[in-house]
């Protein structure tokens, strides 16, 4: 008796009686496995998540409540003949953020923040944000996947259940305490740090540090504020997470108005040359 073969037999989904056809497995997580399938009625490819056990389709309900271009949409849900819940989502052809060589990581990060902020505005905390759960679509769009352990934060899970991914999981989440949107802010800070090639500029490092502060009250109170700080950094403006000295301020302003400064210098140089050499 081959245990692995039997495990495969136990996990293999049987889509008979549904409108879906299995194409190939895409991956597996703690809550369920994702398969590439085909919706035989509409003739389109879909990603189908099949729960390992007869768990309620919490994720499908969460996703259905979050209609946003940065959140993978759910099309349908149902049960397999063995009682397991499945649901079909948009199949995103692209790369995971972790594999993606991003020429503008901060712009991508802002798109992710926008989607997370939207979820928070609907009362949903993702709780498992990490680069593996962010897909970059073929048009450069960022989509947040795997809402398997997401919860409405007004209805937290009972304490003692620590779910998430080490390295991206907020300390209070790792301790199994109830979490709020600031747990996602912690994960976003960890993602931001990962996205940036070293050496990380001081102001960005300060943003990461504030987002990943040990105590939730020391972090940004909302994702929108984290995003605003990153946007300010991109725009060459001062960020709230970092108090700069006079030199740093001058350097930032010079960098921000680099072209204007160069043109003015060119003008002054030309005037000087004309004054000293051409007139004489």
């Amino acid at each position: 008796m081959n245990v692995e073969r039997l495990r495969e037999a136990l996990r293999a989904p049987d889509f008979s009686g549904t409108k879906y056809r299995l194409i190939e497995p895409l991956g597996s997580g703690g809550m369920g496995a994702v398969y590439l399938g085909e919706d035989t009625e509409l003739g389109r490819r879909v990603a189908i998540k099949v729960m390992h056990l007869d768990d309620p389709a919490q994720e499908a309900r969460v996703l259905a409540s979050l209609e946003h271009p940065g959140i993978v949409p759910v099309h349908d849900s149902g049960r397999l003949p063995d009682g397991r819940v499945f649901y079909a989502m948009k199949y995103v052809e692209g790369r995971r953020l972790v594999e993606h060589r991003d020429p503008a990581p901060l712009r991508t990060f802002l798109k992710v923040c926008e989607a997370v902020a939207f979820a928070h505005s609907r009362g949903v905390v993702h709780r498992d944000l990490k680069p593996e759960n962010i897909m970059i679509g073929s048009f450069g769009e960022a989509l947040i996947m795997d809402w398997g352990i997401a919860r409405w934060h007004e209805h937290p899970e009972e304490p003692g259940v620590a779910l998430g991914t080490p390295g991206y999981m907020a300390p209070e989440q790792a301790r199994g305490e109830p979490v709020d949107p600031r747990a996602d802010i912690y994960a976003l800070g960890a993602i931001l740090r990962l996205l940036l090639p070293p050496p990380i500029p001081r102001r960005l490092e300060a943003i990461c540090r504030r987002a990943t502060a040990e105590a939730p009250e020391d972090r940004y109170p909302a994702v929108t504020q984290l995003a605003a700080d990153v946007a300010r950094y991109l725009d060459g403006q001062p960020v709230s997470a970092y108090r700069e000295n006079l030199w740093e301020r001058a350097g930032r302003l010079a960098a921000r108005h680099r072209v204007a400064l160069l043109l003015v210098l060119a003008y002054l140089l030309m005037r000087t040359v004309l004054f000293f050499f051409v007139r004489r």
Binding site: A260, L263, V264, A266, Y267, M270, R271, L274, V278, R279
Partner: peptide, 21 residues
Amino acid sequence: YFEIMLPGSIVGALVGFATQR
């Protein structure tokens, strides 16, 4: 020509930059 055209072109470039930026 030099005294007027060279600075004049840079002033134009600065104005062009300012309107865009």
